[in-house]
Every structure is written in C-alpha cells, then in structure tokens.
Computed example of a mutant assay.
Amino acid sequence: MTTTVLSPAAAEAEPQPATPAVTASAPVVTRPAAVEKEPECLRIKGAEACVGPDGSDRPGVTIEDTANDNLHPAVEYYLNGYLGTKYVIHNLGRKGEVRGNREIGKIVTFRAALYEGNHRVKFGRWKTVRDMTKYPVKRETRVTPTEARARAKTCTSTKGAATVCFGEQNTFVFACDTGADTYQARAQYFVAGDPTARFEIHQLAGVNTCGKAEHGDLAVSMYRASVYNHNRRVATRLYKYN
C-alpha cells in the first residue's frame, strides 16, 4: 500500500480520501445512473468544471471560461481516490472556450479554480463522481523515477529534484520527485501544439514517487520540470520543445 505524504498546509487545502460512508468533510459523491449521459458540473464565477461520459457534450474532465476578464480558469482534480498526485488543466483560451482531457479514472474528485497568471485567486468546493467513463485509466502509484526513465522516450530534470518523462504512441507523462525535501515536483506541459491549454501534474507523495497522466494520441509539444514550495516556484528550467 502506498502512503501519501502531504505537508500540513497542503493537507488542509485538499479533499479527504473517498470512503464508503460520506461525512460532512468528505467531497459530495454522485453515483450517476447507467443510462445518464449528462456531465456533472461545478461552477464558480468565471469558470465551469465538468466531468462527463464519452457520450456527453463534455466528455472527460473539462474547464470552461465563462467570463471576459483578465483571469483564466483551471480544473484541479484527483483520480481514483489517490491524493498523492494532483492534476490541473489551465484554460488559457477566451470566454466560451472549453479545454480538457478525456483520459480519466473510475473515480474523479475535482473543483473549479481561477488564476491570475500563476497565482490562484479563487476556488470552489470539491466534488467526487464515479463510473463516468467506460475505459478508465488505472492508478499507478508505485512507479519510481528509474522506472519512469526506462519506459519513456524523453526525460528532463531540473535543479531541486523534479523530473518529467514522457512517451508517445498513447502518450503518457510522468512527474517524479527525486529529492528528499518538503518541495513538490511538477510537470508543466502542452499537448498537440495547442498553446491555450497547459497541463500540470503535481506530485505530492514525496521522494522517489511519480505521478502519471495519459493523453491518448495527443503528442506532448512543449514541457518543463519544476519544483514548488506549495504554490511558490523555487526551481525550474525553460520550456523545451518536443
């Protein structure tokens, strides 16, 4: 069993693991009927985040910009009840545009947020949905940085112990923490040559752990490895082009 290690400040801001009994502090759990084809959505002023099945108008996990302002929306989410890896999709398009990722897990815990540059200024409540996709991605929590490098086509590292590795043909991305400290490793990248959607993997579980994201047939186009102290970036490299 993998043990998730979170700093006290991070733990206060994150959802509790999914449990069979829903308590007051747990995310809202929705169990859609098998025939339901509508996405489950959360809204805050300026953003709408949804998780939907393949047959809906918003498949996968998506984030829409609903305000014409200087802020941009993002959806933050966890997969399969595992809090050691957080995913973020930043929608850098204009009002009315939707960005997202169709590769989701059996369980998705998500919320909408608003960012000004790299600074998060607002976020909503967490919500958990189950069984939204016919082919959910599996949880991988035991991959080490060495294993990630062996499986990948390309890797890059940054001072402060963050590594990003990825492979293409059913594209996957690993973000690995290689330093025994309180900082977190992040992968920040773009796919399919689209500059209006930035994907991030925040690896929170500690040294020698990796978080994984999948992107189907969409290739990584630009990427970098970064190290963060909560939301403050402490080390990074310039973006590289693939």
Rank of each mutant, 00 (worst) to 15 (best):
T3A: 13
T3I: 03
P8G: 08
P8A: 04
A9M: 09
A9R: 04
A9D: 11
P15W: 09
P17M: 06
P17G: 11
P17R: 00
A21I: 15
A21G: 05
T23R: 10
A26D: 14
T30F: 07
A33Y: 08
V35C: 08
E36N: 15
E40G: 10
L42I: 13
R43L: 06
K45A: 13
P53V: 04
D54W: 05
S56H: 09
S56C: 07
D57S: 12
R58L: 15
P59M: 02
I63M: 09
E64R: 07
D65L: 07
T66E: 03
T66Y: 01
A67G: 08
A74Y: 00
A74M: 04
Y82N: 07
Y82V: 03
Y87D: 04
H90L: 04
N91W: 00
N91K: 03
G93I: 03
V98C: 12
G100V: 01
R102Q: 14
I104E: 09
G105W: 00
K106E: 14
V108L: 09
V108M: 10
R111S: 11
R111D: 08
A113K: 06
V121D: 04
W126G: 03
M132D: 07
Y135W: 03
P136M: 05
V137H: 05
V137Q: 06
V137D: 03
T144L: 09
E147T: 07
E147N: 01
A148V: 11
R149D: 03
A150Q: 11
R151V: 01
R151I: 01
C155D: 02
T156R: 01
T158R: 00
K159S: 13
K159P: 02
V164W: 05
V164R: 00
T171D: 02
T171A: 06
T171Q: 02
V173D: 03
F174P: 01
F174W: 15
A175Y: 06
A175W: 08
G179W: 10
G179N: 14
A180H: 05
D181P: 05
Y183A: 00
Q184C: 02
A185N: 00
Q188K: 05
G193Q: 03
P195A: 12
P195N: 10
T196W: 02
E200A: 12
H202E: 13
H202V: 13
Q203D: 08
G211P: 14
E214Y: 08
H215A: 08
D217M: 12
Y228I: 01
N229V: 03
H230A: 04
R232H: 12
T236R: 00
L238A: 14
K240L: 14
Y241T: 15
